[in-house]
Design a protein around this nucleic acid. Structure first.
Lengths: 128, 128
DNA sequence: ACTTGACTTGGTGTTAACTCCAGGTGATAT
DNA sequence: ATATCACCTGGAGTTAACACCAAGTCAAGT
């Protein structure tokens, strides 16, 4: 796959794809004889995985480390697992915070709803 | 309340508090005769509210608009409600995305667990 | 009276995460 | 043969969201 196709498929700019590769957020992509990137299936999976994780707010640093560990082979399986567990913990924490904020928003919106109803009644009273 | 107390209470630097006020993320705080900020109860509530919303990822832009609407008085109640509803919608979307990522992480961690178990068995076999 | 220390403002610096750009290369269309 | 085009690299530019700083003010302690 060309970089243009990958860019299109995952809605990331070519610059972003090159940037991710440069900083080690995805493994190095092989080039053809003329030096142009040729993304394999696996490269694509990495791109998709990273995009998903970044989208959920996982820190770039942690993901770079994960990729680096992955490239070091099977001895790092335990470490990688621990890393993911830690990130999961933090993700859950963020989600809990967001849940609280959501409830607060719900309450606020309901309060506004009450206010709106009240105002409408007042207006009616004036009209009558 | 002094800025130092508010800073301490909500774990935001004085610089951040001043910055939030400057860009309109919280309403203007009154100063005493000598020009020093004196936060009222209401100011504090704003600080806490904004911190909570920012923490959940609500965009600064939307919050600035909310504060501005608030300061324009009762005619903006409807608009404010709509704004909150829109932000709630986006918050829910983010949470759903994160939920999917969480499930994916769970699956990945489980897979790693399987792998670890397998590797241990292999090692045992070698030892025997 | 003078120093200290917390605060003020206006402005500059920093960091992360892209994003853009200039100059160059190789394959393809005319 | 040459023009076009997609891509390359290294490096500079951008933006958001603060963080830091210099120079000044004011009240309180000694």
């Amino acid at each position: 796959m060309t970089i243009a196709e990958v860019s299109e498929k995952y809605d990331l700019t070519q610059d972003t794809l090159r940037y991710y590769e440069r900083i080690g957020l995805i493994p190095h992509v092989n080039r053809n004889k003329s030096g142009i990137r040729d993304y394999t299936e696996e490269d694509c999976k990495w791109v998709e995985f990273i995009k998903c994780m970044r989208n959920a707010g996982l820190p770039i640093e942690a993901l770079i480390e994960y990729v680096a560990l992955f490239q070091q082979g099977d001895e790092t399986i335990g470490t990688r697992k621990e890393l993911l567990i830690e990130q999961r913990k933090q993700l859950i924490k963020r989600m809990e915070d967001m849940q609280k904020t959501l409830e607060r928003l719900n309450y606020k919106i309901e309060s506004y709803e009450q206010l709106v109803v009240k105002k409408e009644k007042e207006l009616k009273r004036v009209e009558e």
